[in-house]
Design a protein around this nucleic acid. Structure first.
Lengths: 189, 189
DNA sequence: CAAAATATTCAATACAAATTGAATAGAGGT
DNA sequence: ACCTCTATTCAATTTGTATTGAATATTTTG
C-alpha cells in the first residue's frame, strides 16, 4: 500500500538528514543549524522561512538566525519567487564546494591569527636574543625566537593549501573520483 | 635593566600563547585546553600537572582532563622523568603533524557518518524508485536516490584526501615550503 | 503613504558544556 | 602490606551558548 512506501521513504530521508546534520556538527555548527540545512537539502523546491520552521519545529527567530549563518558560509542561498512576498531558500548541494570553502575560511583564519602574533613578537624576541641584559635571558629569547620561526613554514603551507583549495588546483593533486556510477547493485567501498 | 627584558619576553610569549590557543579554538577545542597546550609548547622542559596548573590557574581536575584530551589527539605526550613520581608532559610542536592528524580524524569521522547512512538508505530509495506504489512516490524516491548517489564521489574524495594526509603524500602535491630561513631582518609575507 | 505581511533583533530564559572540590583509585617507595 | 603522593573520576555548580517570544524594522502592495 502507498502509505508504507511514503513512510519508508520519509524514514530513509530522516536517516540521511540526521547524518548530514551530524557531519555538520563535527565542523562546528549547532545541531539545529545542521537540521535546517538538511531540510533544505532534501527540499523539492525553495522553502520559505515558515516552511523550514514547520519542518524543524523551531521558533522563527532561530530559523532566521540559523539560515543567516548558513547564508554567510555559502551553504544556503536566498532566491526570489515571483508572486510571493516571502523569501525562499535553497541549499547549496555541492559538498565539494561546501567543504572547500569551509576549509579555506578556516585556514585563512588560522594563518591570520598566527601571522599577526608572529609579526608582533618575533622582532622583540630577536632583539632580546641579541642584546638582552644577561646571557640567560638571551638564551631564553633565542629559544623562543627559533620556535616561532620554526612555525613559519607551516603558516606558508596552510596558505598554499588554502589557495589550492580555493582555485580548485587541489583536484589536480587529489583528483575527483570518476563519475562512474555503475548501475550495479553494490558500490565500491 | 634585566627586569624589563624579562617582562618583554613574557609579554611576547603571552601574545604567542594567546594566538595558539585562539587558533586551536577555531579547531573546536575549549580555550582552556588551548592554553594548556600553549603553556606546554613554550615550556623549556617537561612539565608536571601541577606545573601546568600553576601556569594556567585552573583546577587540577580541569588540567587533568584537558591534558588527556590533548594526549588523545596526539598533541601532547607523557614522558617519564626518572627520580620523579609525577608524570611529565611535553607538547608535540610539529604543527604539520598536529594539523594533519586533526584533519584525518575529521575526514574519517565525516565519511563514516555519511557512508553508514548512505549504505542504509540508498537501497530503500532505489527499491521504492523502481517498484513504488504510484508514479508520484517513485519520482520522489528516484530524486532522493540520485541526490544520495551524487554524494558518493565526495565521500570517496575525502577518503583520498585523508589518505594523502596520513601518508604524507599531500606534500608531493602541496609541497612544504623551503626551509630557507634567511638571516635577513624581514621575512617574506 | 498607510496597511499588511514578512524578516530580524534583542532581552529573558532554557539548555548544555566546562569547571571545580571532594572523593576515589592508582602507583611507588620503604 | 602499608603509607604517601599523584592522577582521575564524579556530582554539584558555574559559566557560556542557543533558543525563544515579544518588539522592532523592513518590505510589499493597494
Amino acid at each position: 500500500m502507498q502509505k508504507t512506501d511514503t513512510q519508508r521513504l520519509d524514514e530513509a530521508r530522516d536517516v540521511m538528514m540526521s547524518a548530514i546534520a551530524q557531519s555538520m556538527v563535527a565542523y562546528g555548527v549547532t545541531p539545529s543549524v545542521g537540521r535546517i540545512y538538511a531540510v533544505l537539502y532534501f527540499a523539492e523546491s525553495p522553502l520559505t522561512l515558515d516552511d523550514v520552521k514547520d519542518e524543524v519545529a523551531m521558533s522563527k527567530a532561530s530559523v532566521s538566525t540559523g539560515i543567516r549563518e548558513l547564508i554567510d558560509t555559502g551553504m544556503v542561498v536566498k532566491v526570489w519567487k515571483k508572486g510571493d512576498r516571502k523569501d525562499h531558500y535553497i541549499a547549496e548541494k555541492d559538498f565539494f564546494k561546501n567543504f572547500l570553502s569551509f576549509m579555506v575560511k578556516m585556514l585563512r583564519l588560522e594563518r591570520g591569527i598566527m601571522h599577526k602574533a608572529v609579526e608582533q613578537t618575533e622582532p622583540i624576541m630577536r632583539e632580546i636574543a641579541q642584546s638582552g641584559a644577561d646571557s640567560e635571558i638571551r638564551a631564553l629569547a633565542a629559544k623562543d625566537q627559533a620556535l616561532i620561526n620554526g612555525s613559519k613554514p607551516y603558516l606558508r603551507w596552510i596558505m598554499q593549501l588554502a589557495n589550492a583549495m580555493e582555485s580548485g588546483d587541489i583536484f589536480e593533486h587529489v583528483p575527483r573520483p570518476e563519475r562512474d556510477e555503475r548501475p550495479s547493485d553494490h558500490e565500491p567501498n
